[in-house]
Design a protein around this nucleic acid. Structure first.
Length: 965
RNA sequence: GCCCCCGUAGCCCAACGGCAGAGGCAGGCCCCUUAAAAGGGCCCCAGUGUGGGUUCGAAUCCCACCGGGGGCACCA
């Protein structure tokens, strides 16, 4: 090991003095990075405002392009080689588009608030601001060293007060709005109040529990009615409480196993008063507008599934206790088969429908082993509240439930049917109650079997059907009463007929429901944006949440002595959330004059989730220093506005990982639509085009005990892998500390230089494809750059060895085909094929001009073509070729169509689809001429000999195929 | 269990329904070298996961299955 290093060092002097080595690459790269910074090469001018310098000169008449990466969390570990994959991809694309003449905006910020930053700070015992700032410095250095074309004037960090002032301002906008269902958009809440006062509008269903009209309400009652309309509201409802993190979480942050997405701690459902955002008001638009987005189908599908629209009906089942149970079903056509009703255990009617004694003849199994229904119900509720989280993952799916003792009436059949609670019915979906139709629903069938309930088929299964519940298509049976006859109808027809009957008879109506729930927005953590909300300490509006005036923004995050969240044992169900900001005693109360004189207020102590800052950062990039608005409307319109009828607008290219499919990407779309409704932005969507970059997996090694060993110390020999001379097993996995296979960009800069690193990352496959990281393969890209360097620079003398001589006739078609291929690769984000084409040309020129100067007309396009991928070495060579200006805005080479068509082409000749030869024909030869030429091919003649030719396929420029009879 | 993506040379990857190979790594040989390498040149290597189908012709389109990856999972 040591010897090798020494001998390597001793050979250094033998390397030609001007060879393109990692050391030379490093010097070139850093000097160009300095120059780009000094000259502001990547400054993208805005149409107006403080960043508008140069707009009139070189942006006004050119198309614009806004390219963005998902910004990183400044984690303490810095970047590994997997992170830059997307950044390099967008860098190559944006540099290419800039050379095509676009005004390209590209920058980078930091998602600095939130759990990752906070947890790192807690681990290291330092204030999150301190560690986060340190991490930002480290990562910024790594990004700069990569040579990315960022306009650094536009960099932001979500933790900066200048930034989160506007996060709070947008929160206020959402808080100060309601969703006008008729207009299908958000509107300012004052307009709601005015319309209510004027009598043009009545409170939305469920917002006025007082039983009297708006005009009769007291001021306090009116306030609570208005607050219930807001797009941000507080209510008490079951939420995801995660004791291990010490905070509540949104549904999107909880995995299917009932654990926290971050940290993998158990999550419990429990009722708590929390802030929510009314994203459900946008469910339909979030769903419908997916169609107009240029996004991967898989991501659209995940969002569609998450939103989860189902079309059906609500049906009212009267009960013998008075109250009616409203159920939601997507199969109203099966109502005649509803033989019992099930409520979720937490359903509000459970208490009322639970009677004191079991009715005569109640089956033993319905009683839950208790003497009276109230006991049985209480016991079941207790068990299921625990079970729903812990046993979901064991996947037992054993149906259980308890009879309440009361009965409902099936409105179609008039039958008296029992009412159960069972935890296979979910509280939060639909109405939290179902009509059970065992004949057509597998879950209901299982329950009916377990509790000996009647089963009535209302859709005829096909002959020979041996299953239990039949959920497929078929004619309705057993489905008629005095005023309705569905028998014989197909499912769709029966649904429509049933809904009409339900509406006419007053038993129900058509209804669409969504799986999407309102976004739980408050967190009991320190490191986040404070809410711009205060509560009066006394007075008539005591405890009513009130937004602070815009002039009071930002509401600064106070320093507290103990910023770590109060966390609990993972499984401590009884723990209560406790916001760290409640400890900031000086900050907690504030004297304000909100229009009715100076009064005392207490502040909201929850903070926002870390998704808040990333909900709108694309807009702040556009106008990062604006002190009077989050973004100037003219600037937003220029960069993000729709370009044509039907275009949603938004960022032209957004690249990031697929793991944000339903978190960040859904939340950001929601906020953007609110801003659109309120007239603050002209684009309907934030991200017009989305690409998911693939994931890099690096080799990791386990020893005999199955423990990971440091991958950098593993040797490969004799067809095996060894660590400390002991054999180890190779596997591929996510890069990181846990697999001990961390490789950092810094390692690559030192060993190869940034340009080689960039080339390698782009070369291993299309941007959106995951691939393994092969440390040994990087060398190929360094060789490529060395060969290209050698075409321009003499390795011995360092002088330019490019001449003004003509280009060989043979090289012109190669050059032009390569240009064509490189452009195609750049445009389709398949940089691997662009690099392969460039390599082809480099190899060709290397061979053709081994002993004479490289023609300038070959060297220059070559340098320009590689510039988007390897910008530093390209700039260096361009400069040595005599161009004083940066090539960042030099025209990208264009293919001359004259050289793309050959005079003659070789076409394939097939007999019965099998290749039997090839012939050269003029490129413009027609089908007849091609066939004639093909018939002269000796091998073809042999295969045609004596056979009857049934048909001849002759495709000009492609092939001739003889089909024999 | 359901849905989506992917299977091409030892490895990473190319190939408008038209001659399976552009490029790189690894391997072999040669040159340059006292020597070696991350220098240069040449060479080797698959018939496209399996089975059907459509077609004059399929890696490409369709169906089924196998293998790998990802998502969803009592959503009525």
């Amino acid at each position: 090991m040591n010897q090798e290093q020494v001998s390597n060092l001793s050979t250094e002097p033998d390397v030609p003095p001007h060879r393109y080595t990692a050391a030379l690459a490093g010097r070139i790269e850093q000097s160009w990075q300095d120059r780009w910074a000094e000259e502001g090469t990547f400054a993208a001018p805005n149409p107006v405002g403080d960043l508008s310098d140069g707009f009139a000169e070189h942006a006004n008449a050119t198309p614009k392009l806004f390219v963005m990466d998902m910004f990183p969390y400044p984690s303490g570990e810095g970047l590994h080689v997997g992170h830059p994959l997307g950044y390099i991809g967008t860098d190559v694309y944006s540099r290419y588009m800039r050379m095509l003449g676009h005004n390209v905006l590209r920058t980078m910020g930091f998602d600095a608030f939130g759990l990752p930053a906070e947890q790192f700070a807690v681990q290291t015992g330092q204030h999150p601001r301190v560690t986060t700032e340190q991490n930002i410095v480290t990562i910024s250095r790594q990004l700069r060293r990569l040579g990315l074309d960022h306009d650094r004037r536009r960099a932001i960090a979500t933790m900066d007060p200048d930034y989160y002032k506007w996060t709070q301002w947008i929160f206020k906008q959402i808080f100060s709005s309601f969703y006008d269902a008729a207009a299908d958009r958000a509107r300012p809440i004052e307009e709601l109040v005015a319309e209510l006062d004027a009598g043009n509008r009545t409170p939305a269903p469920g917002t006025n529990p007082y039983g009297v009209a708006w005009s009769e309400l007291t001021v306090q009652q009116r306030n609570s009615v208005v607050d219930a309309h807001r797009l941000v509201y507080q209510n008490e409802a079951p939420v995801n409480w995660c004791p291990g993190l010490g905070t509540v979480l949104s549904n999107e942050e909880v995995t299917a196993e009932g654990r926290s997405e971050r940290g993998n701690f158990p999550v419990f459902r429990r009722p708590l008063k929390q802030w929510k955002m009314r994203i459900t008001a946008y469910a339909e638009r979030l769903l419908a507008d997916l169609d107009g987005l240029d996004w991967p189908e898989s991501i659209k599908l995940m969002q569609r599934n998450w939103i989860g629209r189902s079309i059906g009906a609500t049906i009212s089942f009267p009960t013998d206790r008075g109250a009616s149970i409203e159920v939601f079903t997507t199969r109203p056509d099966t109502l005649f088969g509803a033989t019992y009703v099930v409520l979720a255990p937490e359903h509000p009617l459970v208490e009322e429908l639970t009677i004191a004694e079991w009715p005569e003849g109640t089956t033993e199994s319905w009683r839950g082993d208790r003497d009276q229904p109230p006991e049985a119900v209480a016991a079941y509720q207790r068990v299921s509240s625990r079970r729903s989280e812990l046993e979901r993952q064991t996947d037992q799916r054993v149906k259980s439930g308890v009879f309440l003792g009361s009965f409902a009436t099936n409105p179609a059949t008039g039958a008296r049917i029992p009412v159960f609670i069972a935890d296979y019915v979910l509280t939060g979906y639909g109405t939290g109650a179902i009509m059970a139709v065992p004949g057509q629903d597998e879950r209901d069938w299982e329950f009916a079997e377990a509790y000996a309930l009647p089963i009535v088929r209302t859709v005829a299964p096909p002959a020979g059907f041996e299953g239990k519940a039949y959920v497929g298509e078929g004619p309705a049976i057993n489905s008629a009463n005095d005023s309705l006859d569905l028998n014989g109808m197909g499912v769709a027809e029966a649904k429509a007929a049933m809904i009409t009957w339900l509406v006419d008879s007053g038993h129900g109506r058509a209804r669409t429901t969504y799986r999407l729930r309102d976004w739980l927005f408050s967190r009991q953590r320190y490191w986040g944006e404070p809410f711009p909300i205060v509560y009066p300490i006394d007075g008539p509006d005591v405890d009513r949440p009130i937004a602070v005036p815009d002039e009071a923004l930002p509401v600064l995050l106070p320093d507290v002595e103990d910023y770590s969240p109060r966390t609990f044992a993972d499984d401590d169900v009884t723990s209560e959330p406790e916001a760290p900001l409640a400890r900031a005693t000086d900050w907690l109360t504030v004297e304000l004059d909100l229009g009715d004189g100076v009064r005392s207020y207490r502040r909201e102590t929850n903070t926002m989730p870390n998704w808040a800052g990333s909900c709108w950062y694309e807009l702040r990039y556009l106008d990062p220093h604006n002190e009077t608005a989050f973004c100037d409307p003219a600037i937003e319109k220029y960069w993000m506005g729709p370009r044509h009828e039907g275009d949603p607008g938004g960022v032209d290219l957004y690249v990031g990982g697929a793991e944000h499919a339903v978190l960040h990407l859904l939340y950001a779309r929601f906020w953007h639509k609110v801003l659109f409704d309120l007239g603050h932005v002209s684009s309907r969507e934030p991200f017009r085009r989305l690409v998911n970059q693939g994931m890099l997996q690096a080799p990791a090694y386990t020893d005999a005990r199955g423990m990971y060993v440091d991958a950098s110390q593993v040797e490969s020999r004799d067809g095996g892998f060894f660590y400390d001379d002991a054999p180890v097993r190779q596997e591929f996995g996510k890069i990181g500390k846990s697999l001990k296979n961390m490789i950092t960009p810094d390692d690559m800069f030192a060993d190869y230089g940034a340009d080689t690193f960039r080339l390698y990352e782009m070369f291993t496959g299309p941007l959106d494809q995951s691939r393994p990281w092969d440390p040994k393969a990087v060398i190929g890209m360094l060789r490529l750059l060395q060969r290209m360097w050698r075409l321009v620079i003499d390795e011995q003398t360092g002088s330019v060895r490019v001449g003004d001589g003509p280009v060989d006739a043979a090289s012109l078609p190669v050059l032009n085909r390569v240009i064509e291929g490189v452009r195609e690769g750049m445009e389709s984000l398949r940089f691997n094929i662009a690099i392969a084409r460039i390599t082809e040309l480099v190899n060709h020129v290397t061979q053709s001009y081994a002993d004479r100067p490289t023609p300038r007309a070959l060297a220059e396009p070559l340098v320009l073509m590689i510039a988007p991928v390897a910008p530093h070495v390209a700039e260096e060579l361009w400069s040595r070729l005599g161009h004083p200006e940066s090539l960042a805005r030099t025209d990208f080479p264009a293919a001359d169509p004259r050289f793309l068509v050959d005079d003659t082409v070789r076409i394939a000749v097939q007999v019965n689809g099998k290749l039997r030869g090839s012939v050269a024909v003029p490129a413009d030869a027609d089908a007849v001429a091609m066939e004639a030429a093909a018939r002269r091919e000796p091998n073809v003649i042999a295969h045609l000999d004596g056979a009857e030719i049934r048909r001849v396929i002759s495709v000009p420029g492609k092939l001739v195929n003889f089909v024999l009879g």
